[in-house]
Design a protein around this nucleic acid. Structure first.
Length: 321
DNA sequence: CATCGATGTTGAG
DNA sequence: TCAACCTCGATGG
């Protein structure tokens, strides 16, 4: 269940190592054999992420749409550049945050990565030197394998894996709320505020509604509401417009950091030591997510968890009163 | 080794 | 509202 940042990173990985090349497509598992045959021996001409959807375009006007769902993953192998150095045009244009997060070298490292590498892009990214011959044998249930001369990508466990024409892509994208790395951030803000401000819906489920805003998942949702000190049950219609704008701008910021680092980092503003700890330990990484029963990092009140629309929602009853 | 749960979404009831 | 989808790391015995 990669949230939006992961999908953007995957799209960039395809852009780097597959774009413009003729792809050999197959379905080792067999469940996408027909679809694979339709795109095989065609060139990949575009790689786009919109929210949690990945669209890979081919030179026969077909698009592969992939949604990883809750446990899907792409495994890359070959001469791929793994690591945190992935940046987007949008991200590199931004001026003030890249220096803040640019130093983080997670376990991947971007420099000195082995020439042949395996890279798992899912909720957690892992890379390791690759042994043996290329391409490697598919491991487990691989729905789709995309192969070029020097790189291979294996898709496993997706919720959605389908071929669409241009109209189909438009239909899917048209049903999605704004994505700060796809849409103009100012127009996106207007769209979000306009739509969200009319909803007599608690803000917590609304932030995860992909029709309203794209790419936010359960971690970002909880962390953003804490950062803004908003009670998750507040109806969107009861939030000041400026608060909705702040939520959008925070998502713009967090998404960029996520794409650059490959991690959900929401505790900026910490001192050096706390920051290092947050990076080193997953348990120390969040304000409230997965911290039920633990003291709030700000006020010491125990973080609570409740199930909302089938998802666990973590929040501080005092800070977010 | 068995079981649980997860950063999602859909569709049945 | 809840099961199903489908995978795998974490946890417990």
């Amino acid at each position: 269940m990669p949230e939006g940042h992961s999908i953007h990173r995957i799209a960039l990985q395809f852009e780097r190592n597959f774009l413009g090349q003729e792809i050999s497509a197959s379905s080792p598992q067999g469940r996408f054999a027909k679809g694979a045959a339709e795109i095989s021996n065609h060139s990949m001409v575009e790689s786009r992420a919109v929210g949690k959807n990945l669209f890979l375009g081919f030179d026969n006007d077909l698009w592969l749409r992939v949604h990883l769902g809750i446990y899907g993953a792409w495994d890359f192998a070959g001469e791929i550049q793994a690591g945190a150095a992935l940046t987007t045009p949008a991200a590199s244009k931004s001026d003030n945050h890249s220096s803040v997060v640019g130093e983080h070298e997670d376990s991947l490292g971007s420099i000195g990565a082995p020439r042949r590498t395996r890279l798992r892009m899912a909720e957690i990214e892992n890379s390791e030197p690759e042994l043996g011959r290329f391409p490697p044998e598919p491991i487990g249930q691989v729905r789709v394998r995309l192969l070029v001369d020097t790189a291979v990508a294996d898709l496993r466990g997706p919720t959605i894996c389908e071929l669409l024409d241009e109209a189909g892509v438009s239909q899917v994208v048209g049903a999605l709320g704004p994505d700060p790395l796809v849409d103009d951030v100012n127009l996106g803000e207007e769209r979000f505020v306009e739509v969200a401000g009319k909803k007599r819906t608690p803000i917590a489920p609304l932030l995860m509604d992909q029709k309203v805003i794209s790419g936010i998942g359960n971690i970002y949702r909880a962390e953003m509401l804490f950062r803004a000190r908003i009670n998750p049950h507040t109806l969107a219609t009861d939030l000041p417009e400026e608060t909705l704008r702040e939520l959008w701008r925070d998502w713009v910021k967090l998404l960029r950091i996520g794409v650059e680092t490959g991690q959900i980092l929401t505790m900026d503003g910490l001192n050096e030591a706390d920051h290092a700890r947050a990076l080193a330990n997953r348990a120390d990484r969040h304000w409230v997510y997965q911290r039920a029963g633990l003291p709030c990092r700000v006020c010491g009140t125990n973080i609570v968890v409740e199930v909302v629309a089938g998802r666990k929602l973590y929040w501080c009853p005092k800070c977010q009163a």
